[in-house]
Write a protein that binds this DNA or RNA. Structure first.
Lengths: 192, 192, 192, 192
DNA sequence: GATGAATGAGAATTCATTCAT
DNA sequence: AATGAATGAATTCTCATTCAT
C-alpha cells in the first residue's frame, strides 16, 4: 500500500472515530461537521472527499459497528460448540446484551438501527453477516417450521432484545437489565 | 372559561396540531419553529409562551398521542367483555397495530416512544393510563405469577409490538404487517 | 394618602428596587423589562405606566442614588463642624470613597454618572443638592479665587475621585484603594 | 505574505473600521453585527471568523485606538526635546486633549477607557506603550519621589484628563474645554 | 389603573457547502 | 489530495411595546 493510500485510510478512520465519539457523547443532532473535522484534525473540505454528509458517515458507523458486534457474537457462540439451538440463541443474545451494558454509548447510537434492514444491507458489504443466517438456519434444520418463519422469529427476537436493552440499560425502565434478563430469557425460551 | 382562556387553548392546540402534521410529513429535523408558527397562524414569539423549544412540543405530542391511543385501545377492549386474558391482550394489541397501519405518520413519529417510561410519565397527567395497568392486572389475578412479573411481561409485549410494527409497516422488513401478524400473535401467545 | 396612591408608590418603588438590583448584578444591557417586572411581581404593562423605557428607569435610579449619596456625605461633613476647607473636602471625599468601597455594585452602576450634569439636573428635583454648592462656596468665601473657578475645581475633584475609585476598587488598577488613597488625598490637597 | 493572508487582513480591518464608524455614529447598543458586516461588505459568518461577538471587536478597537493615540502623543512630545518634566507632561496632555477635541466620536467611544488597565493590556500587544512609562520615568529620575508613586501620579493625571475631556467636550459641563484647560493645567502643575 | 397574551421585527449565531490555492 | 477562508441562508430566540379585557 502506497504512502498516499495509507494516509487516506488514516484520515478516513480518524474522521470515523471522531464522529463516533462525538455522536456518542454530544448526540447526533448536536454534532456538526465542524466538530468532527476539528476533533479529527483534518480540514473541512477533506470531510467531503470521504463522506457525503453527516448522515452518510453516521450510517457507515452504524453499519460497521453493528455488523462487527453481530459477527463477534456469532463467532463467540460458534466457539462454544453448543449442541442445541436454545443454548446457542441465549448465549448469542447474552453476548449482545453484555456488550451493550458495557457500551451504553453504542447502545444509544445504534438503538433502533440494529434491524433487519441494516443486517440485509450489511450482508452485502460485510462478509460474515450472511453466516449468521446460515448458522441459525442450520440449528433449526430439523424443525418442522419452515425457513421463512425461522427468519421472522429470529427477527422478532432481535427487535425484542434491542428494545428491552434500550429501555432497561438506558432508562432503567421498567427495571434494570439484571432484573429484566430472567424475564427476557424466559420469554425467548417460550418463543423458540 | 373566559374569552382569554379560550383563546389561549385555541393557540396552544393550533401549535400542537401544526407541529404534529409537520413532524409527520416533513420529519422532525426538517421542521423549524418558523414552519410551525406559520402553519398555526400565530406569531413566532407566541410559540415560546407555550413551549420551551421544538423538543418540548415534540415530547408533549408524543405523550398525548400515545396516551390517547392506549386509552382508546383499552376502552375498545373493555367494551368487548372478553372473559380470558389472552383474548383481551390480543385484541388490545391488534387495535394498536391496526391504528398504526392506518396512521403510518404517527407510527413514525412516536416510533418506539410508546414505552414504559412514557406511560409512567403519562399516568400522572392523563387519567385513564393507570386504568390500563389495573385492567390487565385484574385479568391476571388468578394466575400464580406475581404482579411485578406481569408488569414486566406487559412491558415486553408492548416494546415488541412497537418495534415489529415500525419495521414491518414502515420498512416492510422482514415482511409486511399482514405476514408478520400471525407470527407476532403466535409469539405473544407463547409469552403469556 | 389614599389606598390607591399608596399602592401606586409601592409598585413604583418595587420596580425601582428590582431594576437596581438587576442592573447591579446582571448589568444594564443584560437586564430586560421582562426581568424587572418579573422580579417586581407586577405585570408588563404596568412598567409603562411609570417609566418610558429601560433608560428612563435607569436614569431615575442613578439620579436618586447619587443625589442621596451626595446629600448624605454633605450632612455627615456638616455634622463634624470642621473649621477649615481642606479637612471638610477630604472628609466629604472619604465618605464617598468608603461608600463606594462598601457598595461596589453602586460604583459600577453610577460610575461616570456622578457628574456635574447629573448634579445640576438633580438640584432641580432633589432639595439639598444645591446646599452642597452653597456649603463649599461658603468655606471658600475668604479666598481670592473667584466663585466660578471654585466650582470648576470642585468639579475636577469629583471627576478625579470617581475615576480613581472605579479603577482602584473595581479593577485594582494601578493598586487597591487603600494604596491609592494617600496619593489621591495628597493630590487633592495640592489642588485646593 | 500570501494572497490569502493579505485578504484576511483586508477583511479584518474592513470589519474593524466599519464597526468603529458605526459605534461612533450610531452608538454601541444601536449597532448590530448585521450593520457591521453590511458596511464592511462581508458575509455575516465572516464576522465570527475574526471576532467572538460585538464586545470583542469593541475591545479590540478601544485597545488599538487608545494605544495609537498614546504612542502618537509620546512621539510628538519626544520630538520637542523638552528639558523639563512639567513641560513634557503638559504638552503630552494637550496633544491628547486636542485630539479628543477634534475627534469627538473617539472620545465618546473610548470614554474613560483610556485607563491603566487598558495600557497594561496594550503594552503586551502594542510595542511602544511601555516606552511611555520609561519616558516619564526618565524625566522624573532626579526627583526624590519613588518610582511607584510616579506611576500612580501619572495614572491619576490620565484618569483626570479623560474624565474632564468627556464632560467638557461632550457635555460642555461645567464649561467648554477651552475654559476648562487653564484650570486643568493649573491642577496638573500642582499635582506634579 | 392593572393585566399579561400576543406580536413580529430583528438580533445573534450556526453550519453545510464551495472553491481558489 | 488537502486545505480552510468565505459564504449567506436558515434558525433560534429575545424583547419592547401594544391593547383588549
Amino acid at each position: 500500500m502506497s504512502k498516499v493510500q495509507k494516509n487516506k485510510i488514516k484520515k478516513e478512520s480518524s474522521l470515523i472515530s471522531s464522529a463516533f465519539e462525538l455522536f456518542s457523547t454530544k448526540g447526533i443532532n448536536e454534532t456538526s461537521i465542524s466538530n468532527i473535522v476539528h476533533k479529527a484534525g483534518v480540514a473541512k473540505g477533506t470531510f467531503y472527499l470521504y463522506f457525503k454528509d453527516k448522515y452518510d458517515i453516521l450510517n457507515k458507523i452504524i453499519l460497521n459497528k453493528s455488523s462487527n458486534l453481530l459477527i463477534e457474537s456469532m463467532n463467540a457462540t460458534k466457539s462454544k460448540n453448543f449442541t442445541n439451538y436454545e443454548e446457542s440463541v441465549l448465549f448469542f443474545i447474552d453476548y449482545i446484551i453484555e456488550y451493550f451494558n458495557n457500551n451504553k454509548f453504542m447502545l444509544k447510537l445504534i438503538y433502533k438501527n440494529l434491524s433487519w434492514g441494516i443486517l440485509k444491507k450489511a450482508s452485502n458489504e460485510y462478509e460474515g453477516i450472511h453466516e449468521i443466517y446460515d448458522f441459525f438456519m442450520t440449528l433449526y434444520k430439523d424443525s418442522a417450521i419452515n425457513q421463512q418463519d425461522v427468519e421472522k422469529t429470529l427477527f422478532i427476537i432481535i427487535e425484542l432484545v434491542g428494545s428491552v436493552c434500550y429501555s432497561s440499560i438506558i432508562l432503567n425502565e421498567p427495571d434494570n437489565i439484571d432484573k429484566m434478563k430472567p424475564i427476557l430469557f424466559d420469554t425467548i425460551k417460550k418463543i423458540i
